[in-house]
Design a protein around this nucleic acid. Structure first.
Lengths: 135, 135
DNA sequence: ATAACTGTAACAATAAATACTACACTATGA
DNA sequence: TCATAGTGTAGTATTTATTGTTACAGTTAT
C-alpha cells in the first residue's frame, strides 16, 4: 500500500485553504514532510486529472483547478488508485486448476462492485467539507 | 499493496469446493502458484480468525471451519486487512502546520466511514456464492 | 540577466512482500 | 515402533515497490 492518496489529499487540502495563492512544491513538501520532487510528481498527476493547475517560473506554484466544493474525495481516489484495489497475487495462478484458471477474473468482478460502493461513499464528501475540518 | 486478500480468497474457494476433504498446503500452493510456507502462514491467520481448521500429521491439511454459506467476503477482508486501507504517508507530517498536524486523524475518520460502506458491500457476498462462480 | 520556480529523467536508498531452507513437532498406519 | 507425510514457525535471502535524491533543462517575473 502506498501513500499517494494520503499525499494527494494533503496537497489538495493545503491548496483549498490557500484559495487563489500559488503554493510552491517546497512549501507543500514542508507540511507533508516529503521530498519536493515527489510533490511535483503527485501534482502532475492531479493536474492530468483536472484537479489542479500549475504555473511555471518565478512566483509559480499550484492552485485548485476548480472550487473545493466541486471536488469530491472520490475524484482523488480515482486519480490516485492503481491496480486492483484489494490486491492480487503476484504470480499467475495455475491455469490447469478450475479455480486458479478463473480466480483473477472473479476477483476483478468482485472488486469492481466493491469499488463502486466505495466511490459512492467517497462521493458524499467534498474537498470543501474535508478541508473545513481543519483549524 | 500485498496479495493477502486474494490469496486467502483463493485458499478459501478451494477449501469450499473440497468440502470435507483435508487439503494440504502443497496442493493449495500448486493452484495459487506460491510457496507452500506462505500458504501455511496465511492459513494460520485464517485459523486464528475462525475461518478454517487444520490437522497436523500424516493425512493432515485444512478445511473450512464452518459452511461456506456462513462465511462472508467481508470476513476475509477483515481477517487480512492491515493498516489504513487507503494508505498513509510514511513520514509524520509537520506538526507546526495546521493541516499537517491533524491530517492523519481526519484521514482516519474518512477511512473508517469508507471502510464501513465497503464491509457492508462485501457482506452481501458469501464464500458459497463466490465459489459457485467457478466450474 | 538573474532569481525563483516547475517538469522530468535517472539513479540511489529504503522498506515491504515474497520465497526459501531448515527443522521441531504431530499423526497415521504398515 | 518406525517410516512417511503432513503442519507450524523461525530465520534468512531475494525480489519488488516505494520513496528519496541529484541534476538540469525550461519558464516566468522583475
Amino acid at each position: 500500500m502506498n501513500g499517494r492518496f494520503a499525499i494527494s489529499m494533503h496537497i489538495l487540502t493545503l491548496l483549498a485553504k490557500a484559495g487563489s495563492e500559488w503554493l510552491t512544491s517546497d512549501f507543500l513538501a514542508g507540511s507533508i514532510n516529503i521530498n519536493p520532487v515527489l510533490v511535483r510528481k503527485e501534482i502532475g498527476n492531479l493536474r492530468r486529472n483536472g484537479l489542479v493547475v500549475s504555473r511555471e517560473g518565478k512566483n509559480g506554484g499550484s492552485q485548485l483547478a476548480k472550487s473545493a466544493r466541486q471536488i469530491q474525495v472520490s475524484d482523488v481516489f480515482l486519480a490516485t488508485r492503481q491496480g486492483a484495489f484489494l490486491g492480487t497475487s503476484r504470480n499467475t495462478p495455475n491455469p490447469n486448476c478450475p479455480v486458479g484458471k478463473d480466480i483473477n477474473q472473479h476477483l476483478d468482478n468482485l472488486y469492481q462492485e466493491a469499488e463502486e460502493a466505495l466511490i459512492q461513499k467517497l462521493g458524499d464528501c467534498t474537498l470543501e467539507t474535508f478541508s473545513h475540518r481543519f483549524a
